[in-house]
Amino acid sequence: MSENLKRLETPLARVRGFGSAKNGTHHWWMQRATSIGLLPLTLWFAFSIAARAGSPWEVMAEWIARPFNAVLLIVLISVGFYHTASGLQVVVEDYIRPDRSVMAINLAIKAVLTLLGLLAVLSVIRLAV
């Protein structure tokens, strides 16, 4: 508390001084919007892959390469990884302290998810074209 008294400012006043980040509603809305999109995509992917469990490489590569499947896979990966990043961000914000750790961990999570997502998309494109 000593630091705050030196500033002649209460902790609550400091928080109010920061104001909101102005994009909380957008984050909340995008979580819901992506989740609605992921519903049919998840159903389609889960049963498509289950129906091809144990398939030889030729069968699986040909299935991924079909234009319709390739486009749906790329949409699933993009929307799925975006949804994962925004979900993990909320978990980190709720349980991790202090602020600078939250920022560092969220940046690290987004970096890893971006790399993995691009790797997955590139794999689909490589098979499709």
């Binding site: 590569a61 896979l73 990884f81 997955a120 689909v124 490589r126 098979l127």
Partner: peptide, 17 residues
């Protein structure tokens, strides 16, 4: 599920490889 995504990426990357 977020951790499980690693296996989706592995599945796609391995098929492409």
């Amino acid at each position: 599920w977020a951790v499980g995504l690693i296996f989706l990426v592995w599945f796609l990357a391995a098929t492409a490889a």
